[in-house]
Design a protein around this nucleic acid. Structure first.
Ligand SMILES: [Mn+2]
Ligand SMILES: [Mn+2]
Ligand SMILES: [Zn+2]
Ligand SMILES: [Zn+2]
Lengths: 148, 148
DNA sequence: AACGAAATTGAAAATCATTTTCAATATATA
DNA sequence: TATATATTGAAAATGATTTTCAATTTCGTT
């Protein structure tokens, strides 16, 4: 499984004159088997469930490679912890983040993108990247907290 | 000048059983005389231009008081440095940030706010706060960099 | 005006995610 | 297999912010 991703990573490694190693493959596997928005620590824990250990440093370095070759994107919410999400075959999107249970809902909005285009034009601003994050309570948490 | 702000701060200090001190007043003055989006370091430098020195710790602590009493809001862009902006009499807004010269343009958009409302309703999500930050090149930088 | 309880100050140490350093180890090409 | 080059990971460094704590200041009460 995840043949395409592994191939992209392998080719990137080769093209950069880097070497294929066991730690790198284990980290790539952990990431490919993970759900969205995993931190370096998440990966570190996933990768080190067995006997052989991989260091934190290598996790950080390899997640950078995985990002650089186009398989992941680093997102930074409000807690100072970088997280990685899959990018292959995924569309650009933004996030609704539950401050209680940390659930993340992804969204896109044509209306908003259009409004942004107009805004950029009006301010003669050239977009490089943007982040739109909405923090609050998800449905489940809202019910548990008793907000109406 | 800035009578109202000083009064709000003074009343907050009193109501919390805190004490009015020279360092606090100097930091408040520096903030009140500053433009938007100043960092703790900015305030530290402004406050320490003269003879008497105020420590970094006190700047951080006092900026928290200034925020807590409603005169400032802490905003965190992409560089890991907290900045403070004035809130008294200002409307909610978001930011266009030039990655080259660090100029910040504030904006609001009724269209976007409406789209967000629809999004929140659709996802049964209760808003607490949100951030919308657009990074790119301002007009001046675009011209200097030679982007069309 | 002086007293004294309580708050404040700021230098230094701690925090915490992430990065850098560097000696030991692994990979890949000849 | 030899060798050049890249990788690893423990430990130290980083950098913004917070915490600690002994010395100092504030302010209501004598
Ligand atoms: Mn996402
Ligand atoms: Mn602003
Ligand atoms: Zn939730
Ligand atoms: Zn600019």
């Amino acid at each position: 499984m995840r043949t395409e991703e592994r191939q992209i990573f392998g080719e990137y490694i080769k093209s950069e004159g880097l070497k294929e190693t066991a730690p790198r493959n284990r980290i790539l596997n952990a990431f490919l088997n993970s759900e969205d928005h995993v931190s370096a620590e998440d990966i570190y824990l996933l990768v080190n469930r067995g006997k052989r250990k991989v260091g934190f440093t290598t996790v950080y370095r390899t997640m950078k490679l995985i990002s650089d070759c186009g398989l992941a994107r680093e997102v930074m919410f409000d807690d100072g912890i970088a997280r990685f999400e899959h990018t292959l075959g995924r569309k650009h999107h933004h996030h609704l983040i539950c401050t209680r249970c940390r659930k993340v809902i992804e969204f896109t909005s044509k209306t908003m993108e259009d409004a942004e285009q107009a805004l950029l034009k009006k301010n003669e601003f050239e977009l490089q990247y943007h982040k739109y994050e909405i923090f609050g309570l998800c449905k489940a948490c809202r019910e548990q907290v008793g907000h109406k």
